[in-house]
Design a protein around this nucleic acid. Structure first.
Length: 305
DNA sequence: AAATCCTCCAACCGCGATCAC
DNA sequence: CGTGATCGCGGTTGGAGGATT
């Protein structure tokens, strides 16, 4: 299917928004609400692309937008969330009231992106990545785990697919597709998607499911959970209840761990992100979040393509 | 004071996911 | 079920303004 332009480009304003345009857009949304972005410009009398209107509203005009510098707490949260989620800016923004994905993305790129780049340039010559290549699939896995990647604004539920202990270091699914780690809006929760494209874990097929070498664990990833997760409060108990610590503690070096967390997601032991910041790691190691890293690493280590 | 460089961030772009018919 | 429309996301760009030479 060919892509059509989101709107006709002719005769539309581009670039920075004027105060007048802002007022028109704000007034219109106050009256008519958000949505229907494509038709909005015409109805509101704006010479702007609907996409542009949406962006302007979400990133700048919304009344609940928080202005000003990112606080230390917010920065710490961003770092933690980025370590956990990677460049899922919308998810990260969902945990920071009043902050937008664009703002966080810019903040990260401004404050950490360059540092990471510099840091990596220093590290690259000494990096020694183990050879994870397996027959039938050439993969070069990073030494650390990658963040859980989801596709949506807020996580409410996660499926944990834990390999059996004796299998986890040996099984490998070269053609693994995707398992969606839930990520839905506040209201649309408990939706698990993508499993139907993942035969080994087809929830709708008991036969497959039961005969699988794997089994499923799922748990709510609601506000409370994520807060505990992020703050490290009583997480060990939560983990004990929700995670199966078989697989020899996750078999951290397992190259076989397979399965996927959404959207080409890959999550491997000990790797935080393509922009992994070792300096920040050092900082975090001393925090109460460090133990969650080990849990993430051990329990999510098998999340990989 | 002028020129150049650098930083920051608003806005744009392309793509995948989802919706509606 | 297929197709087109729409939405939402993440990566990138470009310009304004500050810093440096």
């Amino acid at each position: 299917m060919g892509r059509s332009p989101c709107c006709a480009k002719e005769g539309l304003n581009r670039g920075a928004w004027t105060a007048t345009e802002d007022k028109i857009l704000t007034d219109y949304i106050k009256i008519n609400g958000e949505g229907k972005w494509r038709n909005l410009p015409k109805r509101a009398g704006l010479k702007r692309c609907g996409k542009s209107c949406r962006l302007r509203w979400l990133n700048y005009l919304r009344p609940d937008i928080k202005r000003g510098n990112i606080s230390h707490d917010e920065e710490e949260l961003i770092i933690r969330l980025h370590k956990l989620l990677g460049n899922r800016w919308s998810l990260i923004a969902g945990r920071l009231p009043g902050r937008t994905d664009n703002e966080i993305k810019n903040y990260w790129n401004t404050n950490f992106g360059k540092k990471l780049q510099d840091h990596h340039q220093q590290q690259i010559p000494s990096l020694k990545k183990p050879n994870f290549d397996l027959p039938g699939k050439s993969t070069t896995m990073p030494t650390d785990f990658q963040p859980i990647r989801t596709k949506a604004s807020k996580c409410t539920k996660v499926i944990i697919i834990t390999p059996e202990p004796q299998k986890c270091s040996q099984q490998y699914y070269p053609d693994t597709k995707q398992v969606t780690v839930a990520a839905e809006s506040d209201h649309d929760h408990n939706v698990i998607k993508g499993l139907d494209s993942f035969p080994e874990f087809n929830l709708g097929d008991d036969q497959n499911h039961n005969s699988s070498d794997y089994f499923l664990r799922d748990f709510e990833m609601d506000e409370n959970f994520l807060s505990e997760f992020l703050n490290g409060v009583d997480f060990s108990e939560l983990a004990a209840n929700n995670f199966d610590t078989n697989c020899d503690g996750g078999d951290n070096n397992s190259t076989s761990s397979s399965t996927t967390a959404t959207n080409n997601t890959c999550c491997e032991r000990g790797y935080s992100s393509p922009n992994h910041d070792h300096h920040q790691d050092d900082k975090l190691q001393d925090s109460d979040f460090s133990f969650t890293d080990s849990i993430i690493g051990s329990e999510f280590g098998w999340f990989c393509d």
